[in-house]
Simulated scan of single mutants.
Amino acid sequence: MLLAVTLEAEASAVIDQLNALGRPSFEDVGHERARAGFEEMPPAGEFVEIATTEDRTVPGPDGNDIAVRIYRPGEGAATADDSGTLGCLVYFHGGGWVVGSIQTHDRTCRSLTMLAGVVTVSADYRLAPEHRFPAAIDDCCAATQWVVDHAGELGVDPARVAVGGDSAGGNLAAAVALKCRDGAAAGEACSQPALQVLVYPVTDFERNTPSMIANAEGYLLTRSTMTWFDDHYCPPSERSNPYAAPLAVGDPAGAAPALVIVAGHDPLRDEGVAYAHQLADAGVPTTLIEYPGQFHGFFGMTRFLSQAREAQELTASILRRELAPAG
């Protein structure tokens, strides 16, 4: 049941400003213009200085290259052991599997790198509709395994690697955790992550949940846009595949511990909550945090929302705990 909670004051001001712009919807302009427009949006996150960034490409699963950006925190990072080896977060950006990139989520990755004291590796997986399911999840598994395989080069502990993402990126992080749990065929499997960070994740293709109906319009992500994303990414025949819809797994026992963050005025709220409960019921250590007065997309808006900063700090605290050196 949805709580009758109004938008938090800062969130209401941001939503009013965004709605006043009268921008066309993604479905009205098509995926190419939607991508360009998403890239051109002014950053909503604060810029955080970090020690270094490095852009490079790593091998993909289908002969493709995957662009990654590697973020390093300063000396004395919280997750460094006595040798200076760090924990790592492999991050997958949101954008409905259709829009978004390393660049659109650069400020979120910078912030989490410094707050958590981890190396962050942001992966630019292939986008739909040119590359439909399972291309994105295959790329994310490949990027995660590359981090594990090159842990020494990166200065990270292969046993202390987390996966995470927001929205569609949260979907991909959950799918990576399941695929690793399942021990998929050689060349597809990823080493089991130490934590999965799921920020308002897509976990299902059901578009008639109470939160989807209640928040169908007016809160940045709409029901019609979500359906448009679905149709671009995943054919109906695959929508019960748990690597596309993690909630369909039924029994996620043995998956990595999870942090799930949801927003009250988000069409995706109910499926995020449902997946958190499914994980917990299966014995997976799970922390569910809800921001009742927030909307989809708030996590990265640290320039405007104090609760975005709070959510990032909370995420970082759990990353520090779960990726702390042994002993």
Results as ranks from 00 to 15, higher is better:
A136Q: 11
D16F: 06
A184M: 12
H265C: 12
N241P: 06
A256S: 10
R160S: 10
S122D: 10
L268T: 09
P242S: 12
L178R: 03
V260L: 04
F38P: 08
P134D: 07
Q278C: 14
M301F: 14
A258W: 01
A175N: 00
A13N: 13
R69I: 08
I50P: 03
I261S: 00
V202F: 00
T53H: 00
C180F: 07
A51G: 07
T108H: 12
S240K: 14
H150T: 14
Q196V: 12
A116Y: 02
A194G: 12
G45D: 01
R23P: 04
T222M: 04
R126M: 04
A280P: 02
V121N: 03
D16Q: 13
L89S: 00
S306R: 13
G164R: 03
D139I: 02
H232D: 05
A78V: 07
T225H: 01
P43H: 13
H31F: 15
G76R: 08
A67Q: 07
A255H: 00
L3I: 14
E206P: 04
M301H: 07
D82N: 12
A311C: 09
Y243G: 06
G95D: 11
D149N: 13
R23Q: 13
N19M: 14
V121H: 04
T85F: 07
A326E: 10
L195I: 06
H265Q: 10
V262A: 07
V262F: 00
P129L: 05
E8F: 04
G300Y: 01
H105F: 05
P42S: 12
Y91F: 12
G96M: 02
D149Y: 08
L323G: 03
C190I: 11
V121E: 04
L2R: 15
S237V: 11
A248R: 13
A80D: 07
V148F: 05
R33L: 11
S83I: 05
L21H: 09
L314I: 14
E188F: 10
I70K: 08
V14C: 01
G96E: 01
L221A: 04
P236L: 09
F299Y: 12
G218P: 06
G218Q: 10
R110H: 14
L86S: 05
A151I: 01
E206A: 15
D16L: 06
D149A: 15
L178A: 05
T108P: 10
E49W: 06
L221K: 08
Q192G: 09
M1G: 09
V90S: 04
Q196I: 11
H93N: 10
V118C: 05
G95H: 01
A276H: 01
G30W: 11
A173T: 06
V5M: 06
G95N: 05
R132S: 09
R223G: 09
T203F: 01
P242G: 08
L89V: 07
A253V: 06
A308F: 08
R321A: 13
A51S: 15
A177K: 02
E206M: 13
G155I: 07
F298C: 06
Q196K: 00
L305R: 07
D106M: 13
L247H: 08
A194W: 03
V99E: 03
T225N: 04
L2H: 08
S224E: 15
